[in-house]
Design a protein around this nucleic acid. Sequence first.
RNA 1: GGAGGGGUGCCCGAGCGGCUAAAGGGGACGGACUGUAAAUCCGUUGGCGCACGCCUACGUUGGUUCGAAUCCAACCCCCUCCA
Length: 415
Amino acid sequence: MSAAPTSDFLREAQERGFIHQITDAAALDARLKAGPVAAYIGFDCTADSLHVGHLLSIMLLRLFQRTGHRPVVLIGGGTTKVGDPSGKDEARRLLSEAEIEANKAGIRRTFDAFLDFGPGKALMLDNAEWLDSLLYIPFLRDIGRHFSVNRMLTMDSVRLRLERDQPLSFLEFNYMLLQAYDFLELYRRHGVILQMGGSDQWGNIIMGADLVRRLEGAEAFGLTTPLITTASGAKMGKTAAGAVWLNPERVSPYDYWQFWRNVDDADVGRFLALFTELPMAEVRRLAALRGAEVNEAKKVLATEATALRHGRAAAELAAETARRTFEQGETAETLPSVTLPAEMLAAGAPVAAVLVRAGLAKSNSEARRLVAQGGVRLNDAPVTDPTATLTAEMVAAGPVKLSVGRKRHVLVRAA
RNA sequence: GGAGGGGUGCCCGAGCGGCUAAAGGGGACGGACUGUAAAUCCGUUGGCGCACGCCUACGUUGGUUCGAAUCCAACCCCCUCCA
């Protein structure tokens, strides 16, 4: 990175660690200072919720809006119909029109928490709008002519595949063109001059920027974010239960808080900068904490990150629930809970079955195994008998805390 | 189109007629130690009211055998070389 950027957006983005590459940092910096700019990031719509893996992009768009610009969320409704073949072993199941619509709605709900979509503010668009009606011959003639196969072959995404003798379908080869075309459409329709995305999108992004430049004679820019891995090298956002989703129906605010509370020590500073909006001075102070004090930083990270997604109240509640559960050893009645039907309790509900019902074990076998290994506790008392049952009397006085391991707790309630 | 090679559990990867629910590693989970961290050590890791039992599982479908992930046939998919 050459001269330090002076626009609010680039300066803060750089300071917080969002930037990996920029096509023309100085020119972009100047444009951002001259007035509001529109920028977009593309998202798949293969699921009805985004997950923590998308959060970096979301936070970047949020920062973009906060610094006075217009973020555009581009949903790949059109490209999802084709199915992105990259990086997948098996062909992905094609989604129906209705599924795509449902997914878009879910994704929209996620974004509503992060961006202001009011009049003149952020936009959410679907590339199906222009891709669905695309005609092959005119597309080839008008757009395809501007793409040099020679150059496409030198792009990392293509070159690496070819070098490793991995197959590359024509469809996939074309993906680049479709992506570039999105940029062109967004420029024409909404004056978008900047595309952002993960570092793996660099090739696609510069193709798009070039296309806009050629056909419209306009300056267009690209910016990529670094690939975020955890200190232990894994792609972030995966836990035992799977992806850490951003929609509360999939991951509760409490579990979301716990996810951030449990990051590696080595990740806390970086994550505070990227996934919260605390002033950098505060981020640096927290990141400098050592030893057991790091826990303070993690709690701040968890609460701030949760507040951004689920609101301050839900975040505080999750923090308080955790404090009472972990630090006081109490049974906080705000923990996630399962309710057992009366007839199940009347007959004596096997602990194993309750574990499965509570989502703490995937099968009865696993539940029994957990008990056998001494990993299960009822109100903090270890369960040693694999055939133990929960009775109505046990739950009559109030919810019972069922725990697996040190960290997973669920309240069991009577219906 | 022709000739070879290959498809194994969450992933990688052994196995190549019975001793195989399938070595080993990774990951994940539980335990110990801690700070709801990392590292380390121990254990677990298909399902089923599971102690002996039963069911499902090694690309798909059939077949040979007392017995198949292992042999045969056809089919599907992938890779390599040739045209």
